[in-house]
């Protein structure tokens, strides 16, 4: 005997990934749906709390010829990170001093920060960086790729300043959604220094194969980076006019 009252409009699911036509038992969700939701939430929670494996990521990046550096924010652990966004934005003082001793960035500084989803960086950062390297012409051998632990977007400002970069590009794990635990965000800031406002940045969000795919994201990033360097600015005055149609048709 089927205990569940099914909904005869399940064909509407073709139009949306929303949880529609779930059926009901009495007024309530069927067991299978409660479990599906619980699993998705568990994955999103794990994404927030799972630490990024910096050692593995670093060795992968170095194997692909990227010059890696590693820093930490002022937030010593995840609970502090969640409660004190100001600490996650600040570069730990010894790290800042150490970065200043490094060879300066030739043009770009790339920052990979765990943010709110380590798996976003673990899965998507390397393929995205590789595609971007193919598009964007710069002194890649000397371009620093800085791995930032417990970092928020603005940690790139201190990193970019210490490395005297013209443009800092921060790739960061976004706040996980129930159906998107591994969404990656990219933020560009021209002439970074601590105290920048969000309106001075450009953002590309929801980068993941099921969201904005790598190729499109790399294309947008290439466009925005070139424009920022040419116009000597980033933020609301820099519009994303990259013609995605060209990429899609290629």
């Amino acid at each position: 005997m089927d205990l569940i009252q099914h909904n005869p409009w399940d064909e509407l699911r073709a139009h949306t990934s929303a949880r529609i036509a779930l059926g009901r038992v009495g007024s309530s969700l069927p067991t299978a749906e409660v479990l599906k939701f619980g699993l998705a939430h568990a994955q999103a929670r794990d994404a927030v709390h799972r630490p990024l494996d910096f050692a593995t990521l670093r060795s992968q990046l170095e194997a692909h010829g990227f010059r890696c550096l590693q820093v930490a924010s002022d937030a010593p652990d995840r609970p502090t990170y969640l409660l004190r966004p100001d600490k996650g934005r600040r570069l730990q003082a010894p790290c800042a001093a150490r970065l200043q001793q490094e060879a300066p960035a030739p043009e770009l500084a790339m920052v990979l920060a765990d943010g709110l989803s380590a798996i976003a960086i673990q899965r998507h950062a390397l393929p995205l960086l590789e595609l971007f390297r193919q598009h964007f012409d710069t002194d890649w051998a000397n371009t620093p790729v800085v791995l930032a632990e417990q970092g928020r977007v603005a940690i790139g400002d201190g990193i970019g300043e210490a490395l005297r970069a013209r443009l800092v590009i921060v790739m960061i794990g976004e706040r996980p959604g129930l159906s998107s635990p591994d969404s990656l965000g990219i933020y560009l800031t021209y002439q970074p220094r601590p105290g920048m406002m969000d309106s001075q940045r450009n953002c590309i969000s929801n980068v993941r194969p099921e969201g904005l795919p790598y190729a499109l994201a790399a294309h947008k990033l290439d466009f925005l980076a070139r424009q920022a360097l040419r116009l000597r600015l980033s933020g609301v005055e820099l519009k994303d006019d990259s013609s995605l149609q060209n990429v899609l048709s290629n």
Partner: peptide
């Protein structure tokens, strides 16, 4: 919200159920 899962704003709320 269908299944309490807002697929646009990425947060959880309450459902029709």
């Amino acid at each position: 919200i269908p299944g309490a899962d807002d697929i646009m704003l990425n947060y959880q709320s309450t459902s029709f159920h």
